[in-house]
């Protein structure tokens, strides 16, 4: 099994100019992702996860360093990765179907063809019957599905998901995780997944990067090699629990050791 490097970050740094002086949001961050992997970033809020995504998506220039996609320098270029922002950002004046085809439409596929391509996916991934509804009539979980499909149906090999399930209740979240696993198995894209839920990260991922704040940096790289397909019961197995404890202790502030114990 020869692994191909899909996405590589080389010493990416970011400094924001703020009224109180320069603020270093990201200390040099480097990592490389192999093709087809599911990789999670976890870290406290404000550690620069969204900033990192913005840089990879080309929406914000890094202060230093480079982003490489397929070994080519892709720093500051847009449209190379699918990016699902923290909000679903569905357009209220478009039907669910027309929201889902937005990416294809922007890339020059005709609306008619794009609709034809998207429809089977909507039906297969739990949005059947909602194609011609407007987003406001969808539940939170449905909206996330639509936003995710919009991201997946763009012809990019890498997709970035920024806390896609952060606002969902626990039960919906569980369903959505399994749904995402099914989709990922089928699309086989390289996924970078941001979450602040350790269990979610460990349950879904092949690898987990743990970040720390002030300045934002990677403090640990874990390989999570539980066999797939994974089942809910996994989260109570000793191996899983031990990994979770380890992550908790990495994320804990120096003051709150009680929380870990």
């Amino acid at each position: 099994m020869t692994a191909v490097t899909k996405l590589e970050l080389k010493d990416v740094t970011t400094t924001f100019a703020t009224p109180t002086g320069p603020f270093q949001a990201l200390a040099p961050v480097s990592f490389s992702l192999e093709e087809g992997r599911f990789v999670s970033l976890i870290g406290p809020s404000g550690c620069g996860k969204s900033t990192l995504f913005n840089i990879v998506a080309g929406l914000q220039p890094p202060s230093g360093g480079a982003v490489l996609i397929d070994g080519e320098d892709a720093t500051g270029t847009i449209g190379r990765v699918g990016y699902m922002l923290q909000k679903d950002l569905l357009l209220s004046w478009r039907t669910v179907l027309d929201n889902v085809i937005l990416g294809m439409e922007i890339r020059g596929v005709s609306r008619k063809e794009a609709r034809g391509r998207a429809e089977p996916y909507l039906r297969r991934y739990g949005l059947g019957g909602f194609e011609h509804q407007y987003p406001r009539s969808l539940s939170g979980g449905m909206r996330q599905r639509a936003a995710l499909l919009r991201t997946l149906l763009v012809d990019t090999d890498i997709i970035l998901l920024d806390e896609p399930f952060g606002a969902l209740d626990a039960q919906t979240k569980g369903h959505m995780q399994e749904w995402l696993m099914r989709i990922w198995t089928e699309f086989r894209k390289t996924v970078v997944f941001v979450t602040h839920d350790i269990e979610e990260a460990l349950f879904l991922s092949d690898e987990v990067y743990v970040m720390a704040t002030r300045p934002g940096r990677v403090v640990e790289h874990l390989t999570v090699d539980f066999p797939r397909p994974r089942h809910r019961g996994l989260v109570t197995e000793p191996g899983f629990v031990a990994l979770k404890q380890h992550c908790l202790s990495l994320l804990a502030e120096p003051g709150d050791t009680a929380l870990v114990a």
Partner: peptide
């Protein structure tokens, strides 16, 4: 940002 991330 969403639009630009899609290469618009």
């Amino acid at each position: 940002r969403l639009f630009y991330s899609l290469g618009a």
